[in-house]
Design a binder for these strands. Structure first.
Length: 105
DNA sequence: CGAATGACAATCT
DNA sequence: TAGATTGCCATTC
């Protein structure tokens, strides 16, 4: 099944170290799907947060997370990332240049 | 089986 | 450079 894609996404997201954030395109590219950023997001739509899946560390290319209502409240992701050590811009966006996850490390 | 949706990205104007 | 549009992949109806 293509669910393997889902599994891969979960595994990869789980591998994101604290203090770092990854974009959907970045994850998709790691999985070998340079154009499946949407699929990655969809995978998260059903991502069991109870699994410990740091979906709040997954952002879009804009440096902003998906609709806050997904996390259960607005401003929650900002607090979570902030607790991880993520720097937020005045725009309410994360500094990707500073926290974009680097698999090289 | 076919069409529509979705937490995006890239490209074109 | 900014804004708008199309395309892609996988899932669900």
């Amino acid at each position: 099944m293509r669910e393997r894609f889902f599994q891969n996404v979960y595994e990869l997201v789980e591998k994101i170290p604290p203090g770092s954030v990854a974009t959907y395109g970045q994850i998709a590219l790691m999985l070998g799907h340079p154009r499946s950023a949407r699929a990655v997001g969809f995978a998260m739509s059903g991502a069991p947060k109870e699994r410990g899946l740091p979906c709040h560390r997954v952002l879009n290319q804009r440096g902003e997370l998906s609709p806050e209502h997904v996390f259960g409240g607005r401003g929650v992701q900002r607090m979570l990332l902030e607790a991880e050590g993520i720097s937020f811009l005045r725009d309410g966006r994360v500094d990707l240049r500073r926290h974009l996850w680097k698999p090289c490390v």
